[in-house]
């Protein structure tokens, strides 16, 4: 039960920050989500995002910031194994699920359904 609570709170806080940015700044959703991704990447580089995931589970995994974290982690771990070139080869290792799933499901939906406006 503790898992639910921490996930709820952490995820909620991240989203609230996002909502405040939507409402109080002229930034577009694209700007804000990109910012979160960059934030996740930097926190990932500092090793802090993984600690957040351990603490909050899905609450830290699902926001788009975790995408940035996964990209950074992928790059870093591969670089640790194979040297600097690993930054290029390892980047999409961990994020493959997200991107592939989005493309596949997006494509299927486009084939089967029409926008209703």
């Amino acid at each position: 039960m503790g898992n639910y609570l921490t996930a709820f709170i952490v995820g909620g806080v991240i989203c609230i920050i996002g909502q405040l940015l939507f409402d109080l700044t002229p930034l577009t959703p694209g700007h804000i989500l990109t910012g979160f991704t960059i934030g996740g990447g930097i926190l990932g580089g500092l090793g802090l995002y993984d600690r957040l995931i351990d603490f909050a589970g899905a609450g830290a995994l699902l926001p788009i910031s975790s995408f940035g974290n996964s990209l950074a982690k992928g790059a870093m771990s591969e670089a640790a194994r194979t040297g600097v070139i690993g930054v290029l080869t390892g980047m999409f290792e961990l994020t493959s699920t997200g991107i592939t799933a989005a493309i596949i499901f997006g494509f299927i939906m486009a084939l089967c359904f029409k926008p209703k406006g």
Binding site: G18, P63, I64
Partner: peptide
């Protein structure tokens, strides 16, 4: 609002 846009649901 952000509750559905910030998680990967927004991306999808």
């Amino acid at each position: 609002g952000a509750g559905i846009a910030v998680p990967v649901t927004g991306f999808a």
